[in-house]
Amino acid sequence: MRLGVIADVHGNLPALEAVLSRLAGLAIDAVVNLGDCASGPLWPAETVRLLRASTMSHVRGNHDRALGALSPDGLGASDAFAWRDLDAEARNWLAALPFEIEIGKARCFHASPQDDETYLLDEIESGRLVAAHPEAVEALIGAAGSAVVLCGHSHQPRLLRLGNGTVVVNPGSVGNPAYQATHPSLHVSESGAPHARFAVVTMADAAAVEHHAIAYDWEHAARRAEANGRADWAHALRGGLVLAST
């Protein structure tokens, strides 16, 4: 089975369109979306419509869960923008997505098996995301082994094979190559490039993993972010780096 794996689209419609077009030419059997579909100052409603029209499977990300709120009051700027752009049906669809699913031999969730905000393949070191130690990953996954574990959330493309043979994959972010976060402490995630990321996992006796980074019109996306008052997003979209504080 060849499984296309996407995550963290964050409302970036042209990036999603480019990724789906590329996947269509790669002899994929199925596609899974690991969540955080719409949050961001780009095209939330159009992105959700495209995702819902597809045949892919989905799990719920932390920002998808947040968009189930009754009002945008108290949400962060990116979530609030998406909440206002989406209708109630779309918000409810996002919030009702499953926390975890299995596809073939793959266990799929947004962040970790414990919750949707705990990094699995990453940890914070000196205010930046770095690769987590295998022992920490094993502790989060637990004793029940799966051939393949798929996660997103950190926006960092990663691959780790554990001692029991389990292959853990983060495909990186389709639509948001850099961000700054305050939970669980202040840190940044930077991919260092504006490309749209996804992965292809071939599940056989030994899992094979292909990480893809493809070009799309990120300048168009950056201009959209600027038009919606988000210079920080525009900077991230153009270079995969966080805008330095002044």
Rank of each mutant, 00 (worst) to 15 (best):
A215T: 13
G240W: 00
A204D: 14
W43F: 11
A213Y: 03
R2N: 08
T202E: 15
D217N: 14
E138R: 14
N92T: 12
W233L: 13
G163T: 15
S78I: 03
R22P: 00
T47N: 03
G35Y: 06
N228R: 05
E219H: 12
H235I: 01
V137N: 00
F198V: 07
V188C: 12
G172D: 03
L97P: 03
L94G: 05
V209A: 06
G40V: 05
G25P: 04
S191P: 00
W233F: 12
P98C: 08
L121R: 02
R161Q: 15
E190L: 09
R84L: 14
H183G: 07
R158N: 10
H220P: 02
R223Y: 05
A15V: 09
E123H: 11
S245M: 03
T47Y: 02
V167P: 05
H212W: 13
V201H: 02
P194H: 05
S185T: 11
L70R: 14
K105E: 14
T246C: 00
G35I: 06
V188E: 06
R22L: 08
C37N: 11
S126T: 06
A234I: 05
G127Q: 01
I6R: 02
A77T: 13
R223L: 14
L121F: 06
D36V: 08
I124Q: 00
G163N: 14
D122R: 11
A88S: 11
N92V: 00
E100R: 14
S245A: 12
D8Q: 07
I101V: 14
R230Q: 12
S71C: 12
S154N: 05
G76C: 12
A27C: 10
H63G: 05
P44Y: 01
H212C: 15
Q114M: 11
Q180Y: 13
V32E: 01
Y179G: 04
G61N: 07
R52K: 14
G165I: 09
V209S: 07
A96E: 13
D8C: 05
I141S: 02
L159T: 15
V148C: 07
L67N: 04
R158K: 12
P184F: 08
V200T: 07
A236M: 07
T47V: 08
Y119K: 00
A15W: 02
R238H: 03
P171S: 09
V9L: 04
T55S: 15
L16K: 06
I103T: 13
V149T: 07
E17R: 15
A207Q: 09
H183Y: 15
V59R: 05
E210Q: 14
P177E: 04
E210D: 13
N12A: 05
L162M: 10
A221G: 06
N12Y: 03
I214K: 08
Y119S: 06
L140P: 00
N33V: 09
P44L: 06
R65K: 11
A213F: 08
A90H: 13
G11I: 05
S154V: 11
G40H: 02
H212K: 12
A204Y: 00
E123G: 09
K105Y: 04
P41R: 11
G35T: 07
S71A: 15
C151K: 08
A206V: 12
A234D: 06
A53S: 15
N164E: 13
T182K: 13
N33M: 02
G74Q: 09
V167E: 02
S71V: 11
Q156S: 10
L51C: 03
S57W: 12
S191I: 12
